[in-house]
Amino acid sequence: MADERVNKIIEILKKEYPDVKIALNYSNPLELLIATILSAQCTDRQVNEVTKDLFKKYRTPSDYIRVPQEELEKNIYSTGFYKNKAKNIKRLCEILVENFSGEVPDNMEDLITLPGVARKTANVVLSNAFGKNEGIAVDTHVKRVSARLGMTDNTNPDKIEKDLMKLVPNKDWGVFTLLLIRHGREICTAKKPRCHDCILNKLCPSAFTFG
Rank of each mutant, 00 (worst) to 15 (best):
T140N: 03
S101G: 04
T140D: 01
K52L: 01
Q41L: 10
Q69R: 14
K171A: 15
L179H: 02
N28P: 04
V138W: 12
L111V: 07
A118K: 11
W173T: 04
C93V: 00
R148L: 11
N75Y: 07
K162E: 12
K14M: 14
I181K: 05
K171E: 15
N133A: 07
I76L: 10
T121F: 07
K56D: 03
R194S: 08
I112Y: 11
L203N: 03
V47F: 08
Y58G: 05
T43C: 01
Y58R: 01
L72N: 08
Y58E: 02
K15F: 13
D63K: 08
L179M: 09
V20Y: 01
W173Q: 12
L149C: 09
N25T: 09
P193W: 05
A190C: 01
V67R: 08
E161Y: 09
I187R: 12
P68F: 15
R66S: 11
A35L: 03
R148P: 04
K191M: 02
A2D: 11
A2E: 14
Y64W: 00
V175I: 15
F100S: 06
Y77N: 06
T177G: 12
L96K: 08
G135R: 08
I10Q: 10
P105N: 06
T43W: 09
P205K: 05
L13D: 02
L96Q: 08
L126K: 04
P193K: 05
G150D: 01
T43Q: 09
N75W: 13
